[in-house]
Design a protein around this nucleic acid. Structure first.
Length: 423
RNA sequence: GGAGAAAUGGCAGAGUGGUCGAAUGCGGCAGUCUUGAAAACUGUUGAGGGUUACACCUCCGGGGGUUCGAAUCCCUCUUUCUCCGCCA
């Protein structure tokens, strides 16, 4: 959620930046300013009325003590009238605040200066690529066929017990996945992130805090009986641990990592590209989250990018980094870098990480602040990234490491797996 | 799931209708003393909104109500604790 004070100060600048998303925000921002104006003037009137009635009430108390009931009764009458006025004003205030809130919820985050304008994924900017695409002997198989051949992932079994998009990992497949989780968590904690295990269901307030609600409601599984949501990413519970906090400057940065399964309804996203592990309703992910001083958040973002690069380098997977264009940028992000691994067998790039700086957009919803050196309360910047999303890394490994003898295990994972080939 | 108790400032803990935003203690901060530190003593110390700065408004778990006036009374929700039941 954008800050109204920001809109007041730099409306034109924001409109120009939002245009990179293909949005003309002029009208909405002006409507916000207007709604805010109404809200504030109503608040002022209400305060005034309450102040008057407070002083009267105090006087009444004093008059009663003196025994001057008649005078007190006159004041009582006056105060009753004020009370009615204040009731009306506070209703106005509520509607004005709701109106403002509703408008604010519709505006996505303002893209950072680095974000290219563009409408879809074709306009994303490749900023880096590294790693060798392996020479595959004979016919290279896609991972869903490899999974079957070596009996390590059973998609049909998942369909039987739950439905499409809920695979069952088996034997060395399950072990490889567990190895990856451990490896990622070890690397993240070694880089200074504190490991957390968090709930996999969250309440409504948490969904709002990180911006999944109300916009993407349809993407989360909703347990209506208890009004809880299955998390679509660890970002939600991890970031919300700090919801409403007022931190001291020296508590920053806060850095967390956590492994969780992620649940996504993916309503309406069926098609050619969703085979195998490419798109699932339930998948595992190790996430990193940072809560940063606003002046340091972009440096932190670079650090996260470098950290994820190291993971991919160690796994020896060919990858590239994209800077998302305005049109492809998520609602809450100011800037996002996507990491993609190339799969030779599928001849396509698979997204395995997405790293974003949300600046104050989430913090404003979360009311997550810190006290700066001047003693003023300021919103922090929040950032997060996948390190990494498991299924597509798994797919990348299966496809890129396949040999006639079997699937080799990346060297760094061998100690975690306890074997060096799947055959 | 059933029965009971509770929720107050960073923490502990008073306050049961009227100058209560809230006693007191601890902690924090500043000062005196000291070569320095500790101890002792003195002062200060909740948050949000608003204002150039004041004024002023709001906040005693959340929401609603009674009243001229609520931390205090009523309703409701949530959470915590104790006991019972069930259970990985």
């Amino acid at each position: 959620m954008l800050q109204v004070t920001d809109i007041r100060d730099r409306k034109e600048e924001m409109i120009a930046a939002l245009a990179k998303r293909g949005i003309d925000a002029k009208q909405v921002l002006e409507a916000i300013l207007e709604a805010d104006e109404t809200r504030r003037s109503t608040q002022a009137k209400l305060d005034e009325t309450l102040a008057q009635s407070n002083t009267f009430s105090k006087e009444i108390g004093i008059l009663y003590k003196k025994g001057e009931t008649q005078k007190a009764n006159i004041l009582k009458e006056k105060t009753s009238q004020l009370k009615e006025a204040s009731k009306e004003l506070s209703e106005h205030l509520n509607t004005a605040s709701e109106e403002l809130q509703k408008l604010l919820y519709t505006v996505p985050n303002v893209p950072n200066a680095l974000v290219p304008s563009g409408t879809d994924e074709n306009d994303n900017e490749e900023t880096f690529s590294e790693g060798e695409v392996p020479e595959l002997h004979g016919e290279a198989l896609p991972h869903w066929e490899l999974a079957k051949k070596y009996d390590i992932i059973d998609f049909e079994l998942g369909v039987k017990i739950t439905g499409a998009g809920f695979p069952v990992y088996k034997g060395k497949g399950a072990r490889l996945q567990r190895a990856l989780i451990s490896y990622f968590l070890d690397k993240n904690t070694a880089a200074g992130y504190t490991e957390y295990q968090v709930p996999h269901l969250v309440n409504e307030a948490s969904g709002f805090g990180t911006g999944q609600l109300p916009d993407k409601e349809g993407q989360m599984y909703h347990v209506t009986e208890d009004d809880l949501y299955l998390i679509p990413t660890a970002e939600v519970p991890v970031t919300n641990m700090f919801r409403g906090d007022l931190l001291t400057e020296n508590e920053l940065p806060i850095t967390c990592t956590g492994y969780t399964p992620c649940f996504r309804r993916e309503a309406g996203s069926y098609g050619a590209h969703v085979r195998g592990l490419n798109r699932l309703h339930q998948f595992d992910k190790v996430e990193i989250v940072r809560i940063e001083h606003p002046e340091k958040s972009y440096k932190a973002l670079d650090g996260m990018v470098a950290h994820i690069q190291e993971l991919l380098r160690e796994l020896k997977l060919p990858y590239r980094i994209l800077r998302l264009c305005g049109g492809d940028l998520g609602f809450t992000a100011a800037i996002t870098y996507d990491f993609e691994v190339f799969s030779t067998a599928q001849d396509r790039w698979l997204e395995i990480s997405s790293v974003s700086n949300f600046e104050t957009f989430q913090a404003n919803r979360l009311k997550l602040r810190f006290k700066d050196s001047d003693g003023k309360n300021k919103l922090v910047h929040t950032l997060n990234g996948s390190a990494l999303a498991l299924p597509r890394v798994l797919a990348g490994i299966l496809e890129n490491y396949q040999t006639p003898q079997g699937i080799k295990i990346p060297e760094v994972l061998v100690p975690y797996c306890g074997f060096d080939i799947i055959d």
